[in-house]
Write a protein that binds this DNA or RNA. Structure first.
Length: 588
RNA sequence: GGGGUCGUAGCUCAGUUUGGUUAGAGCGCCAGUCUGUCACACUGGAGGCCGCGAGUUCGAGCCUCGUCGGCCCCGCCA
């Protein structure tokens, strides 16, 4: 007999099951041997059930049970009965199993950390022993939510006539965008497949094929440095629709999020979501993914100080920059040290320094006050709604940098003052729209697509491509939840001529464009519907739904910040033979 | 590519400021006692390459340099 198969799970039994003879299978959570009484907590994915042995009348069982340690896998047979002392903290807390027989299925060494919810163990140890870490309920429940998201995706998009189509993982390397993960071809030595950064071109070609509505839950791969919300492989809910306009994608996506929040959190999400232009988002919140759960807006005082005697301000404005202010409400009590910390943060984003001004007991306190006229200060106070006890933080720089710096400070202030904590249970859904089509890359001295090269310009801006491409806007949109970018998409170019024009703008010669994207240009010749779509970051959505701060908590087998898999040791060296077969040689 | 921070018992950490006897604590573990525990309790015990390698020094957990690894951030992420 290997084991007796379970009749129930460790989370399912209730008082109605009393007197039933049941068999449970699971892991031993703890053994509490009171001498005259032994309790064993048995755990599986569904919960924990208490087993009990009375040594006085069950001496053989009691003797055998002495071998049982934490994390042993056992089967346990016994009768369900009411507890003398119920435990109101767990769902099975009213009952227990009076053990009649049990068997050890698998012994376990002492694990390096306890399998409990609130664990202080370092990330390094937990990742090395991921198979143990994943036993913890607090981690497992993230994957239950993740599974729920999969189900809603399938249901919702199926109900809306979407077709799931799988696209290749071995594809052609495309030079734009992120660094590719390359896979060497054995048959064609010296040639490589690339793992997809996204199935972008495949889904567009599916539209040209007439699939009309496509969806896929799909892995994407980008060989870039990691962050707490970024892994080299991640999952997207990728979708694309034909014969639609921007608002069709937007409302389809809103319906999806409303459904997700309803089914998973039982929260009613108001649609349509708030919309904001990229320019407004940057100007008002210093971010293209503003967290709108709280206020703290930026103010532009460029006009006010353009003729100021304070040269730092006036020179910035006259050279095309801006002066912006964040009113950190009630932060005048910040010490010099705290302000220095803010300055350090600002410097990370390229600030040379941060000017500040605070009002304490009605008195202006500021290192730059002596450079500003009294009426200038009064005007600044009025514009920023600055009152006693407030702290103003100034950034004077080129527009995007000045905004970004204060945007970072805005978040830091919100963290430091407890604002973030106070809005933890709120959700703010936002569309950021009207992105620039292109951004100028100073390094290469040419334009790069802000979204991707297949994004359609605004209809009214098409002529700008010839004259002033830098100010053309794109039919692109990002969806932002609580300050996290959880998705982005666009209406695509469906005209071969405009697509060619776009490649040219990006500095690709006709030959280069043909070599890299010839198949797309070719496909565009044969009848292409207007189409567009969006890619939603599934991992980040699960993070938001579970309230976790780190993407590793929602990916079963994640990499460390330096891209290592500590459990299995990837990436690893390979046999010389394997390299030879691929025609590869390692050089130092 | 750059910056910050951390690495001491199975786990979490103190000790590093100012180098100096035998490196501590809590939890866990082991043994014993215990009939209603569920963070069981109580008594006792075991447990250390102070990440690794050089160096300075009479002497290094502590100072210096290098290196490996965790976490966070900037750049990067169409």
């Amino acid at each position: 007999m290997n084991f007796l198969k379970r009749t129930d799970t460790c989370g399912s039994l209730r008082k109605e099951d009393c007197d039933k003879i049941v068999i449970l299978n699971g892991w031993v959570q703890t053994v509490r041997d009171l001498g005259g009484l032994i309790f064993i907590d048995l755990r599986d994915r569904y919960g924990i059930t208490q087993l009990v042995i009375h040594p006085e009348t069950q001496s053989e069982l009691a003797e055998r049970s002495k071998e049982i340690k934490s994390e042993f896998v056992i089967w346990a047979k016994g009768k369900v009965r009411m507890r003398e002392n119920p435990n109101p903290n767990i769902p099975t807390g009213l009952i227990e199993i009076l053990l009649e027989d049990f068997g050890i299925i698998s012994k376990a060494e002492l694990p390096p950390f306890e399998i409990v919810d609130d664990i202080g163990t370092s990330e390094e140890i937990k990742l090395k022993y991921r198979f143990l870490d994943l036993r913890r309920h607090s981690l497992q429940k993230h994957f239950i939510v993740r599974n729920d998201v999969y189900q809603v995706v399938h249901k919702y998009f199926n109900e809306n006539n979407f077709i799931e189509v799988e696209t290749p993982f071995l594809m052609k390397s495309t030079p734009e965008g992120a660094r590719d993960y390359l896979v060497p071809s054995r048959i064609y030595k010296g040639r490589f497949y690339a793992l997809p950064q996204s199935p972008q071109l495949y889904k567009q070609i599916l539209m040209m094929a007439g699939f009309d509505r496509y969806v896929q839950i799909v892995k994407c791969f980008r060989d870039e440095d990691l962050r707490s919300d970024r892994q080299p492989e991640f999952t997207q809910v990728d979708l694309e629709m034909s014969f639609i306009e921007r608002d069709d994608i937007i409302s389809m996506t809103e319906g999806f999020f409303a459904r997700l929040w309803k089914e998973i959190l039982d929260v009613d999400v108001l649609t349509p979501f708030l919309r904001m232009s990229y320019n407004d988002a940057m100007n008002r919140f210093g971010s293209d993914k503003p967290d709108l759960r709280f206020e703290l807006e930026l103010t532009d005082i460029s006009d006010l100080v353009k003729n100021s005697e304070f040269k730092v301000f006036s020179d910035t404005v006259s050279s095309g920059g801006v002066v912006k202010v964040l009113n950190a409400k009630g932060c005048a009590e910040f010490s010099r040290k705290k302000i220095d910390e803010l300055t350090e943060l600002a410097k990370k984003y390229g600030a040379k320094g941060i000017a500040w001004l605070k009002i304490v007991d009605g008195e202006i306190n500021s290192p730059i006050a002596k450079f500003l006229k009294e009426d200038e200060i009064e005007e600044i106070k009025k514009l920023t709604n600055c009152e006693n006890g407030d702290l103003l933080l100034f950034s004077s720089d080129k527009w995007s940098r000045a905004c970004t710096i204060l945007g970072a400070l805005r978040l830091e202030i919100a963290r430091k003052t407890g604002i973030i904590d106070s809005v933890k249970n709120k959700f703010s859904f936002l569309w950021v729209l009207d992105f620039p089509l292109l951004e100028f890359d100073g390094e290469s001295g040419r334009y790069a697509a802000m979204h991707h090269p297949f994004t359609s310009p605004m209809d009214e801006d098409i002529n700008l491509l010839e004259t002033e491409p830098g100010i053309a806007k794109a039919k692109a949109y990002d969806i932002v939840i609580n300050g996290a970018e959880v998705g982005g998409g666009s209406i695509r170019i469906h005209s071969r001529e405009i697509q060619e024009k776009m490649f040219k703008l990006l500095g690709l010669s006709k030959e280069e464009a043909d070599a890299k994207f010839g198949f797309l240009l070719e496909a565009l010749k044969y009848g292409c519907p207007p189409h567009g779509g969006i890619a939603l970051g599934l991992d980040r959505i699960v993070m938001t739904l579970t309230g976790t701060e780190n993407i590793r908590d929602v990916i079963a087998f994640p990499k460390t910040t330096s891209g290592l898999s500590l459990m299995d040791g990837a990436p690893s060296n390979v046999d010389e033979m394997q390299l030879k077969e691929l025609g590869l040689k390692i050089i130092e």
